[in-house]
């Protein structure tokens, strides 16, 4: 049964879409009902981080095993992660407009870090397209991908915690308690995170199969 995780993904996401709008949330000023965005905006970023982790593992495997399959997988995972970052950014921007009062603020290190990380991964894609030789491309982009993953973690996980951030859980006190989440919110938030990660893995698997077919046709 190889479809089990897809079914779980769909069920979990559907559950969060329905119950995320119905359950009781803490009544907080400024945030108001937008606190429910925690169920949709944050899990998208978790899925993005997960896909980038898959990508870097595949890149390391490319370097150790010297296989082109792993290189294709690393590229596909990064592509799915990149795909998640776009709705992540736009939903965050909309949320920021109605709570922080601006579409984008350069005061927040997490926003800047995410912007830089996206540019780093764009450079990864450009690097891949600019090398023609397959083996060379696999090795160079694998090395770069390890670098990109480390930099992304510095920019979006470490630096925002060292300085002050508008994001909850950042600014010197990384703790889920600061999300102002109560247990009924966690009952939606965690399934949402798992659901979107599994959904991302589904997209990744389809991309892998397509690139496998492409390779067969090229041979």
């Amino acid at each position: 049964m190889k479809h089990w995780y897809k079914i779980i993904a769909v069920i979990l996401i559907l559950y969060t879409l329905v119950w995320g709008l119905l359950n009781d949330v803490p009544r907080l000023d400024i945030l108001n009902e937008t606190i429910r965005n925690v169920y949709y905006h944050v899990p998208i970023w978790f899925a993005m981080l997960f896909m980038m982790s898959v990508s870097v593992v595949q890149s390391i495997l490319t370097l150790t095993k010297n296989k082109l399959d792993n290189d294709a997988k690393a590229y596909n995972a990064a592509l799915v992660g990149f795909f998640f970052s776009i709705p992540g950014l736009t939903t965050g921007s909309i949320w920021a407009k109605y709570t922080w009062g601006t579409w984008w603020t350069f005061q927040d290190p997490k926003l800047n870090g995410v912007a830089i990380s996206i540019l780093i991964y764009l450079a990864y894609f450009i690097l891949r397209f600019s090398v023609d030789d397959e083996l060379k491309r696999a090795r160079i982009s694998a090395v770069y991908n390890v670098f990109a993953f480390v930099m992304m973690n510095v920019f979006i996980m470490i630096l925002p915690r060292l300085t002050d951030s508008l994001h909850p859980g950042n600014g010197g006190n990384p703790a889920f308690a600061k999300y102002d989440m109560d247990s009924s919110m966690r009952m939606v938030f965690y399934p949402a995170v798992i659901g979107w990660i599994l959904f991302g893995y589904w997209l990744f698997e389809i991309k892998n199969r397509i690139s496998f077919i492409k390779n067969k046709i090229h041979d």
Binding site: V10, I13, L14, L17, V18, L21, L22, W202, L203, I206
Partner: peptide, 15 residues
């Protein structure tokens, strides 16, 4: 909720 759910189901069906 029904609208959101239908859109998501449609996307999954497409996938």
């Amino acid at each position: 909720i029904a609208v959101i759910a239908i859109i998501f189901i449609a996307l999954v069906a497409f996938l």
